[in-house]
Design a protein around this nucleic acid. Sequence first.
RNA 1: CGGGGCGUAGCGCAGCCUGGUUAGCGCACUUGACUGGGGGUCAAGGGGUCGGAGGUUCGAAUCCUCUCGCCCCGACCA
Length: 575
Amino acid sequence: MLFSRALIPTLKEAPQDAKNASHTLLLRAGYIRGVGAGVYDYLPLGFRVLKKVERIVREEMDKAGALEILMPALLPSDFFKETGRWDSFGPNMFRVTDRKGSEMHLGPTHEEIVTDIARREIRSYRDMPRNLYQIQTKFRDEPRPRGGLLRCREFIMKDAYSFDTSEDGAKASYETMRKAYCNVYDRLGLQYRMVAADSGAMGGSTSAEFQVLADSGEDAIVACNSCNYAANVEVAKGRLADVSADSDSAEAPLEKVATPGTKTIAGLVKLLEIPAAKMLKAVFYQYGEAEGAAPPAIALVLVRGDHEANEVAVARALGVAEVTMAAEGDVVKAGAIPGYAGPVGFTGKILVDRAAAAVKNAVSGANEKGTHVKGLNRGRDWDGEVKDLRLAAQGDGCPNCEGGVLQAYKGIEAGHIFILGTHYSAKMGATFLDQDGAEKTIVMGCYGIGVSRLVAAAIEQNHDKDGIRWPASIAPYQVHLVTLGKEPEVNEAAKKLYDDLWAAGVEVLWDDRDERPGVKFKDADLLGLPLRVTVGAKGLATGQIEVKARTESDPKKAELVALADAVASLKARFS
RNA sequence: CGGGGCGUAGCGCAGCCUGGUUAGCGCACUUGACUGGGGGUCAAGGGGUCGGAGGUUCGAAUCCUCUCGCCCCGACCA
């Protein structure tokens, strides 16, 4: 591609809307343009990257025996109504009405649609196992699109669905996908972790997330430094060595202390000079909806002052699908004072984390404005249901091995695989006849990869202050050829190199513009192609061109290569 | 949806509080000259429904009301 004929509108300054590295760089380097909130144009460069990610995903899926199909994005409401998701998906779904008044929607995911295919076309155990996948545009009316391509309302996703005759079969299909996913992320050249995860609303049992490691990631994960244990903090179980043995042996008397204006743990630590680990943090969660004038059910959750409550674990302990932080008004109605809340005198449901339950002579709110209590002891002064309710954190012991310590990472969820069981197939009547002639329900799994999100995730993980640093496998072109000066011999040498490289299968973007060197180099760094090849009159005089990897930040470290060997040398770097 | 912020040229911003000539600056763009290894210099240009609607006023980018859009923090997810 000739730069002078391309559409690569680079920007010197970052649009103020962009906050993430990937969003800013995709915009500045001319890969994408925003059209609406969470909706983007892929300009030529961006589209090439997207296609490359798609190709890798497709190749690995095909290799794993999955069959590519394409389901519609525009869907009649019937299927989601069959499983109840027409209602449960709520406002997250884009709904449309056709001219006849029929309710339709834009597909946010396709379990129902693919199950419909299965129920119609898969009738015998002989028809399984099968795995159907598609690479499709998905639509979700996200409460908050953000981060450019990281979280869109319209995005590209690869979604695959497996169909098996048994739970064991489903596990085998799941395992096949797990391997395929690892191949995909390996080929993309990204650092990632496969982590245990919450199955959430998808209605499955076993599930794992593929997290691309990046400081800007929204998900917190922990991984063991000695074994292969890794989990989303939502489900991670960190071991705390000292939980059962509090150093205080004697119980102190319960005592009120005045703490006006001190509503935070940090404030209490300062005021009372007592460590956070000796405090009980009181958090209120609402579970179930408010009914009419009656306030919703509220549970008091206690974790140690230096810990965080895990909402997924809380929901599980309460036996509900999800909980939300209770509104301040409802907390007051439940008989507690926000900022000074504690278990003493609280008559509602109390859940306490195992670590918090072990704390002796603790400090907590007195349920009185401006007052806390100290010398608080469970059993004597209060009690609650003991569960594991805290978020695992950096430094916890590994639950899976001896001596391992958990490290904390931030990740971008770029893939998620589930065993669904018969959640959808049972509701939709997707059955088959087994060998023994008995009618059974198909056992399913589903497997997603955020294709467009990966474009952004790759940049979050691979960039510097000057621009993108594409992994070679998904760079829009491999070589950024820069010519300096207007001498005809420079142009001729570059033209030949350009043609020969393409002929040799190396993708080249040639910056043939009449621009000053500085402009070209800055743009080259911004675009982020893996190799920059510079042809100038000076080098040419000795038959040399200059080659610099994008990952090499010192321009003086560029390597000189004989023009005669250039094609072979460059090609070798991409094989 | 709760909380915060922003809409003035393609991009980044000033002007608004305290209404008053042709609405300004940097970058980008056009033309010319010089220049030529890290976003160069000079000169001359083009480009604006000041997000939209209504109102107050002799007069509105500026004040008031409504509205639309976008971004950030939270709950959700690939």
